[in-house]
Structures are given as C-alpha cells and as structure tokens.
Write a protein that binds this DNA or RNA. Structure first.
Lengths: 145, 145
DNA sequence: CGGGATCCTTCACGATACTG
DNA sequence: CAGTATCGTGAAGGATCCCG
C-alpha cells in the first residue's frame, strides 16, 4: 500500500478533495455498497448468520470473485466494523468471518434494495431495449407514470 | 460514442463477459445506483415530485456535479425509464425532468438506505479511525456484536 | 439554456505469481 | 489455507471548449 487503504477510496477526511464531496453519508455508504462485491459478500454472510464462514467457503459461495477482491472486500468490511474476523492459530491458519450487529443491520435496507431490483429490473431492461431499437413504428413508450 | 451507451456499462446482455456477471438484478441495480450522482439526482427529483425540474435547477440542487455528469446521469435514468424528459420547443429550449412512477418506487428503498447511512455512518467513521490509529493502548475495539 | 465532443486522470477490478 | 505484491486495463468522472 502506498498511501491509501487498499479496499476503499479516501478514508481520510481532511486530506485532499474534501470540499467537493462534503459529508453526505449516503454517498459514503454507496461508495462501499456500490463496490462490485460488497453487497454480495454481506448477503452471503447474512445468510450464514449468526454462523461464521471461512475464506474459501466465502469464495465458493460468491461465484466469479477473485481471491484478491474477496480479500480486499473483506478488509474494507472489517475496517468499517461490518464484519468481524477471527483467526484460529492452527498450523494451516483458519480464518472465520461473520457479520457484526452493524453489518446485520445493514442487511435490512440492502434486502429492500434487492427486492426492488428483482421486481423492477426486468422493466428497466425492457426500457433499455426500447431505447436501443427506435426502429419500430411509434406509440411504444417505456412505462411512464 | 464508440460502442456502448455513454451513461451505462454493458447494456446488452448476451454480448461478451456475460457468464461472469450472470443475471443478478441486484448487481445491475447497484451498478446504476452506485454511480456517483444517480442516487442524489433521484433524491432531488423525488423531493420535487410530482413537480418537474429543469436542467439548471437540478445543477443548482446537486452541489458539485458537473454539467457533463448531470447530463450523463439523466440520460441513464431516462434510458432506464426512471426519469421522464420533456422538451419545451421555445427559442432557448427548456427541458424538464421528473421521476416516473418507476423512479418514485425506487425512492422508497433508496430512502431506507439513506436513513441507515445517516444513522450508522458516524459509527463506521469511528471504526475506520480506530483501525488507522493502533497507537493507543488496548481494549478499544470497534463496536462488534 | 441545455447539452455534445474531447482530453486526461484516477481508480476498481482481474490475472498471475509468490508466501507463511 | 489464506492471504500479499505487482501489473495492466477499462471505465468513471472532472475540466474545458463548442454548438443550436
């Protein structure tokens, strides 16, 4: 690591580029949640809660994730206090991860967003396809209000 | 534009790189919502709903956004059918934006996420500061469960 | 007024290789 | 097993200029 933490953007308020992105907590949260693997990781850990999952087990449950991104994502979550890391000092070390209470509380609004996504993303896909092919006649509008 | 739409990632399912990111609607949604200005734009439009806002008015209400990013963000939202665009063909053209019913329905889970952020981000910030300064004695742990 | 077209920088993410 | 280190790429996003 050169200057910043590996898993996040500017974690230091007061360094540089601070006035532009003031203090809006929503943006800070979306910077983490919007990260490609964060929400998936939280979801998988939430499904296993209150149990723990080991690194390899997490990898298996998150299809497509690389070991680097899993590592980076988990470090971010641990830094944020959303995930607790427990190392068993055995000969091949066994590391266990679980959601903290804070992490579990995030699962609720995240699940709401997931629910919305599964309900309405097909409609969004339809709208995008309509926008891509204006070749048809007319009168085919995306679902407006 | 070379190949893809300006405001979005791969909008075409079935092109390439499809097997890795299968069909998970949550990721698709977070790819949009996680985009820097999308959630803020939706929020501002939701506050004005069912009224409309013009381009310059939106810029004023979203501090720090560039006109390019506002343009790109709005185009994405319009493509998705979350925002409706109405052009008044006057001499200096007046363009009005408003949330569609779909966009308004997204506001609900988004507000839940905002609420969580405002409640818990201070704690996350605290946890990050604790992780940055291990210089203190001991016993100061982030708020675990 | 409401953008579009370009240029440029930064960063998220993937692939690969190495370690304790 | 559970990472860390390094390299390279594509895409987000800011700044600037121009246009109808």
């Amino acid at each position: 690591m050169t200057t910043s933490a590996p898993g996040g953007r500017e974690r230091r308020p007061g360094r540089r580029g601070d006035l532009l992105d003031p203090l809006c907590p929503t943006r800070q949260l979306l910077d983490r949640v919007g990260t490609k693997w964060t929400s998936m990781t939280v979801k998988v850990l939430a499904e296993a809660a209150p149990g723990e999952l080991r690194f390899a087990e997490l990898r298996r449950r998150i299809p497509g994730i690389s070991q680097k991104m899993l590592s980076v994502t988990l470090q971010s979550l641990v830094r944020d206090g959303l995930v607790a890391r427990r190392v068993e000092p055995t000969v091949p070390p066994a590391v266990h991860y679980r959601l903290t209470a804070l992490g579990l509380s995030l699962e609720t609004p995240l699940a709401a967003l997931r629910d919305w996504a599964e309900t309405h993303m097909p409609e969004i896909d339809r709208n995008n396809r309509l926008a891509d092919e204006p070749a048809s006649g007319q009168g085919a509008r995306p679902t407006e209000s």
